[in-house]
Each structure stands twice: as structure tokens, then as C-alpha cells.
Design a protein around this nucleic acid. Sequence first.
DNA 1: ACAACTAAACTGACTGGTCAGTACAAAAAC
DNA 2: GTTTTTGTACTGACCAGTCAGTTTAGTTGT
Lengths: 197, 197
Amino acid sequence: MTDGRSRRREDTRQRLFVAAVELIAEQGFSATTVDDIAARAGVAKGTVYYNFESKTVLFEELLRHGIGLLTAEFRAAVDGLPPREALAALVRAELEYIRRYRAFAQLLLSEMWRTNREWQQTLRLLRGEAIEVIAETVRAGVDSGDLPADLDVRTASSALFGVGLVVAVDWLVFQPERPIADVQEALLGIVRRVAQT
Amino acid sequence: MTDGRSRRREDTRQRLFVAAVELIAEQGFSATTVDDIAARAGVAKGTVYYNFESKTVLFEELLRHGIGLLTAEFRAAVDGLPPREALAALVRAELEYIRRYRAFAQLLLSEMWRTNREWQQTLRLLRGEAIEVIAETVRAGVDSGDLPADLDVRTASSALFGVGLVVAVDWLVFQPERPIADVQEALLGIVRRVAQT
DNA sequence: ACAACTAAACTGACTGGTCAGTACAAAAAC
DNA sequence: GTTTTTGTACTGACCAGTCAGTTTAGTTGT
């Protein structure tokens, strides 16, 4: 069961993910070479190809892994909460996630709105899954009258997702000395005002 | 003065800018080749190097050109207006700009928060110039009491800039069938609520 | 206990292709 | 007659992906 081989392999994959996410966040997918990733992970280039079909597949699995985690945290955050509290919980969860997986968030922000890339379809799908959690919450709030009736669910959801991302990453990149708690405060304040019926 | 030669050259440079901005918006800087840019501009590769020192310099001048235009429109928009109206005018100007230079906005969103790229310093500087115009307006509003006193000028300004960018580009990429006027409406509503004293 | 065996995991030199940048003679535009 | 553009060919660096060989972890036989 606890096979040392598969544990070792999972470890290598994890190290490759970490190396790849950092480098791609800094430089972008195309500017990051497989040799770079291997070197930063402390493995040989061949190991990358033993563990992943190709550079693109490595990136796609990385996206799946990262966004999957985010979606899970979204689901856990809203669980059982009434709409307006759930909305605040979502903002908190998103920022907490960005704080923890800073490089991944930066990568997401940079690659999210690209077109004409082979992995674009994958990213679009995953983005949809994460936003769907937000959309469910917003929809419930609008239906129950807890949120303004004229709120467009699809728009509000994707805006909320994007805004959290951009504000947090901007803060991390351009004003890193500030505590993330301040961003959370500011964003919560904005969301609360906008959510007023 | 109106030298036909320099006008012609300016024309070529312009065509190269347009080709480059479209390709880089779609694929990113590294994935875009000089041959691609030349081909899309309908120009020989040598012409690119006759007009620009290198691929990187072409991109830097492109950034300067594009953000310079945006900054100018910001300045024109706020000219003489009282703070709260100036703020609304800024949002309108930003969205109008994004509508007109869609590809450039997309490019900006993708490259803005990168680190470790040779042109990053240039971009950071230019971003500062554009945001400074917003910051002046916000500062004036806070000083005169037209905007909430507890508003952090630097944060609010960069947030406003980034949010406009992300919401507009998100709309353009994921819901292109919708009229941009809707985004403007939504954003203005949000900004108005947040700006309430 | 431990040596022999096996398959999984990993290595790194190598290949084939791509791309930024160069060179330059001839042509076109002004 | 000067500036700008073209077209083509070339170079050298770089890089994704391959593969034959090596190491490691677990298994089997004694």
C-alpha cells in the first residue's frame, strides 16, 4: 500500500510542479525551458519526460492540480452558509489561497486571458468550474432576495473571481511590504457595499 | 517638414506595432517570432531590424507608445472636473481605451504582473505614470472630502486601474457578444458605491 | 539474514528543428 | 542620389523531446 516507489515518484512530480509554477509565474510558459524546470527541481531532464508526456501536459496537469485545489477550498468555504456570509467567505478563501499559492496565482493572472495557446481550452474549462461555485452562491442570494435582484449572476461571478485575483496579485507584486489582511479588509468592504440590496 | 520618407517610415513602424500587439496578445512575447510579426505586417524581416534595434526594443517602444496614449487620455478625461466626476470619467476613459485597443489591453493584462523579464523595469515605470493620473484625482477627492477619508490613495488607484483592466478584458475574452456599455455601467455602479462618503 | 533478480525511476548526452539576428545586392520610393 | 524596403541566404545559440544506459527499491529464493 505505502509503496516507497510511488511515494518517491509522487515526490518528484510535486517538486517538478513547484519548480514549474515558480518559473512560469516569473517568465511565462514559453520563456521557461524544460531544462530550467529540471534544474530547479534538482532532477535530470529525462525525469521530467519520465513523469510527464510533454512540457504542455506538465503545465496542463499543473493547472488542473492548482485550480482543483482552489475549487475545493471554495466549496468548503461556502458550505452551509447563508448567501451574504458565503460571499464574504469566498473572498476570504480566495485571498487565503492566493497568499498560500502566490506563484500559482500570478501564473493564473498572466495566462488566464490568453487566446491561441494549446492549453487554453483546459484553462477555460477549469476556470468555469471555479466560477461555478461562486455563481451558485450568487444565484442563491439573488433568488432569496439577499442580494440585489438586478445583479447579473454570470457577470458578477466572473468579476468577483477576476477582481480578487488582480487586486491580490497586484498587491503582492507591487506592494509586498503590506500585509495581505489589508487587501482582504478592502475587498470585503467593496463586496459588502456592492452586495447591498 | 512633412517629409514623405519619414511619413512612410512611420507608417511601417505603425504596421509593425499593430502586428506585434495582436500576436503578442494572443501568444505572449516569447512565443511570438520576428518572422511572424514581419509576415503579419506584410513586410520583410530585414525591415523590422531596419526600424527597430531588436525584438525586445520593439516591444518596449510598443509599451511606451500604448501606455503613453492611455496616460494622455486619462489626463484629457479628468481635465477640470471635480473629483467624483473625474473618477467616473477615468473609468469611462479606461474602458473606451480598452475597447479601441483591445489587443493592447489583453497584452498589458498578461505581461503586467510578470517578474524577471528584461522589459519589466520599463513596464513598471510606465504603469506608474498611468496610475499617477488616477492617484492625483483620488488624492484631490480625499483632501476635499468628496471621497472617503480612510481611502488609501495608492492602493485605491492601482486597484481601480487593475480592476478596470481585468473586468473589461474578461468580458472581451469570455463574453464578447455583450456590449461594452454594460461593463461600463456595472463598473461605474461599483465605483460610485465604493466612493460613497 | 542476505544475495540474486526485476522492474520502476532516473540520468545526461545527443538530435533535429526553430529562431533572433546578420549580410548584402538589388529594387522601389521619394 | 539618398533613404527605405525587399528577398534570400546564412550563422550560431537554444531548446523540446529521445533513448541507451545506470541506479534504486522492493521481491524472491535460500
